[in-house]
Simulated scan of single mutants.
Amino acid sequence: MKLPVRVHRARLGAEEYRVIRPRRAVERAVLLDQDHFLNGWFDRGAARTVGGLWLLAARSPRSLVHVPIRRNRPPAAFARAAGEDERLDLVLLHHSLQFPPARWKELRARLGAGVPRTADLPEAEGAVAEAAEAAPRDRHHREYRDRFHQHVVAGTLFMTGSARAFRETADRFLDVARHGPAHIRAHPASPHYCAEIHHLEGVLAPHGRGLHLEYCEHWAA
């Protein structure tokens, strides 16, 4: 996968931070904060882009990966279900960066136009097939450290984890992109196709909220 991105740099006091964003707007993607869980809808292109950014976060431990989608409107078919729930951006970052989410709004305001780059992500092609083999058996052990910690700050869901955690969950988005379109064509009477990062699988820190990721093909203006 070749993923067009922009690389931004901004300072907060003595620290300089590197922020990576997709170069093209991810328009057909929405993530909602619905209290006990996080619910998202994506078309094929958006799910593939976010899956690529998930993999990019795995190999970019010194960067914050920002997916600006909070101003997108939900698909017309799900607008009622979305109600007044808060729409969220995504920020993906390695735990070693130790960036305080409370300072995100300040950093976000300092980002300029950025520099265009292209990320080469060959691992994206095999991510879905390899996911089951990669899943560790020790996720539920108390000492297991490759878990995501979540924070919601300034209209943004922070997913803070290890490279391993990002690599082993990027397949959920890529699966939606790869199989969602064919599923709804084959099953028009029951067109629901989704993937989850489930709180019971051991990849989220205690009290973490699962992510439900649903494919949606029709996005009315």
Rank of each mutant, 00 (worst) to 15 (best):
G202H: 07
V91P: 04
R71H: 15
S162R: 03
I20S: 04
H192T: 13
E125Q: 14
E196A: 15
P188I: 09
V153Q: 05
A29L: 08
F158H: 03
A77I: 09
V50I: 10
N72A: 08
P188E: 01
A170I: 05
G161D: 04
P191A: 10
R178F: 06
G83W: 01
I184H: 09
D171K: 05
V26Q: 06
P206A: 09
H94Q: 10
N72R: 04
R172D: 09
F78W: 12
R23L: 12
D146R: 06
P4L: 00
T118H: 01
V7T: 13
R147F: 07
I184F: 11
F78A: 11
L53Y: 06
L107V: 06
E201W: 08
R28H: 11
G13T: 02
Y144L: 10
A14G: 13
V176I: 04
R139Y: 03
Q98S: 15
R24Q: 14
P74Q: 02
V26K: 05
L111Y: 04
P22K: 02
Y193F: 11
E125V: 11
T156G: 07
P191F: 02
R172G: 06
E106V: 09
L200T: 15
T49S: 06
G51R: 03
R145L: 12
Q98D: 15
R21L: 14
A195I: 08
H198N: 14
V91M: 04
R80S: 14
I184G: 05
T160V: 15
F37K: 07
Q34M: 12
G40E: 03
L111G: 01
V5R: 00
K105L: 14
A131I: 02
R62L: 15
R110Q: 10
F37P: 05
A10S: 08
F166Y: 06
R185C: 12
E168S: 11
H218L: 14
W41H: 09
E143T: 15
R6W: 00
V19P: 03
T169C: 08
A46Q: 03
H8S: 04
A57P: 02
E86V: 10
G208L: 01
D35I: 13
E27A: 14
H141C: 15
G114N: 00
V176Y: 02
A221F: 08
T49N: 04
R24A: 14
R80H: 13
S96L: 13
E133Y: 09
H212Q: 15
L213I: 09
G126Y: 01
A163T: 08
E217S: 12
S162F: 05
D138I: 13
R73Q: 13
L38S: 00
L53N: 03
G40L: 01
P206N: 02
H95L: 15
G210K: 04
A10N: 02
R9Q: 11
H66Y: 11
P122M: 05
F173S: 00
R28W: 01
G83I: 02
R142P: 10
G210E: 05
L31A: 00
L12E: 08
E143V: 15
A186K: 08
A135L: 14
N72Q: 01
A29T: 00
G13D: 01
R28E: 10
Q150N: 07
D120L: 11
A205M: 10
V30M: 05
V152G: 08
R142A: 15
A109N: 09
V128L: 04
V67Y: 03
G83Y: 07
R87H: 10
F148R: 02
